[in-house]
Nucleic acid binder design. Structure first.
Length: 196
DNA sequence: CTTCAGATGCTCT
DNA sequence: GAGCATCTGAAGA
């Protein structure tokens, strides 16, 4: 079983965000592998980024996980009902992470359909298929992630990342989603996505 | 295809 | 009490 090593995460956050595209996120759940290729990411860097929860090294109970060693999972609740998954980057003490915004399902799509829509895969509408795991809240619901895994070490089951497999199309970047409040940081081109 | 309102609960001030 | 790294369904173009 090949995991991305800690050194992969212990780098500049923008580099990690780009390099995660095409890698395979693995969630072991109920004895099954739920996996997907990472298609979209965003970088958050507390040192200089007003959109980051830990901007200017702000430490609170929630942001404590962002200060953990690289390769730690940071999961938080947003809008009262959705979970977002981040992978902590840079040396311990530098609060920074990559938000996973989109997955393309590989293994376990049947279970993902039940988790996300409560229906079988072959019962999904065209719209449900198209919007299966293409958002941070959607993918967490689809692979059964919640805050109980906050602080989890990504070099151990049941949640980890495997190296890129297969070919990948062009990589694009642009402004991040949903950070209009972040003043000058709202225009940073720190969102990355790949043609698959 | 688009916009729009509402759901919902935790965290920090 | 305010605000939030979102999503859904309904309604309109």
């Amino acid at each position: 079983m090949t995991y991305l090593p800690r050194a992969f995460y212990d780098r500049d956050t923008l580099t990690v965000a780009r390099d995660l595209l095409g890698c395979v996120l693995v969630r072991e759940y109920g004895g099954e592998r739920l996996t997907g290729r990472i298609t979209e990411t965003e970088a958050y860097i507390g040192r200089c980024d007003k959109a980051c929860h830990a901007y200017h090294y702000k430490r609170t109970r929630r942001t404590e996980t962002l200060f953990a060693r690289p390769g730690t999972a940071y999961l938080y609740l947003i809008y009262g009902m959705y979970t977002c998954l981040n992978l902590v980057t840079e040396p311990a003490g530098e609060p920074a992470a990559v938000l996973i915004r989109g997955l393309e399902p590989l293994e376990g799509a049947e279970t993902m359909a039940r988790l996300r829509f409560g229906r079988d895969l072959d019962e999904l509408t065209a719209t449900q298929r198209k919007n299966f795991l293409n958002g941070p809240g959607k993918l967490c619901k689809g692979i059964a992630l919640d805050r109980t895994l906050d602080g989890h070490d990504l070099l151990t089951p049941p949640l980890y990342v495997q190296p890129r497999q297969g070919e990948m199309g062009a990589i694009h970047c642009g402004p991040r989603i949903g950070v209009d409040y972040a003043q000058e940081a709202k225009d940073f081109p720190w969102r990355f996505w790949a043609d698959m």
